[in-house]
Write a protein that binds this DNA or RNA. Sequence first.
DNA 1: TTGACATGCAAGTTTTTACTTGCCTATGCT
DNA 2: AGCATAGGCAAGTAAAAACTTGCATGTCAA
Lengths: 96, 96
Amino acid sequence: MDEVCRAIADPTRRAILDELVDRDGQSLFELCARLTLKHGIGSSRQAISQHLEVLQSAGLVRVEREGRYKFHWFHGEPLEEITRRWPTRTQGESDA
Amino acid sequence: MDEVCRAIADPTRRAILDELVDRDGQSLFELCARLTLKHGIGSSRQAISQHLEVLQSAGLVRVEREGRYKFHWFHGEPLEEITRRWPTRTQGESDA
DNA sequence: TTGACATGCAAGTTTTTACTTGCCTATGCT
DNA sequence: AGCATAGGCAAGTAAAAACTTGCATGTCAA
């Protein structure tokens, strides 16, 4: 829970999740390129790699090494914990 | 969105939200006391006050000043943005 | 109106987090 | 084998949070 919340607190990491939702299974290099082009993020490869570690540790990204490539998949299930923990609508707040 | 994600990244702020869900409409002093007793949080009044500002700015807490008291109410609706942004279940991940 | 209580404000310090830099390892192709 | 590609590691730096300290303001009650 703590790791999930901290993971999505960074805008670059949120962009990474967006990118993976858009095209799942990207390698580190592919991600770096697309983040720069489509999201205007100028972070180095190492920076992105560290972000991916945080996301992986939070369970939001699944990683698999194949040869010299490392592929990444989005996994959103841990996010459910957030809305499970707090009600998104207060009692009696229905718009009737 | 950015503010919402950053707001719940801190464990003390998550405890504040828990406390307000448990008993809505608490004053700053009341919150400080209950956070110390029930959550083992030893932060000062000023620290809690600053956390509340962050939560208010993110739209997760509604504040109303009455005389010398300041009351706080939980408002979870902004959290919906998170699960709206990313799918919580990957396509084809049904447990059939 | 004086004093106690509830909170606000702002500058400074400590701790975390994000990012960089430089070098190393491993894989695959020719 | 040799070289280029994909990625890893670790120490250091820079920037952003969280927290503290000290004093100020405003409200209520006697």
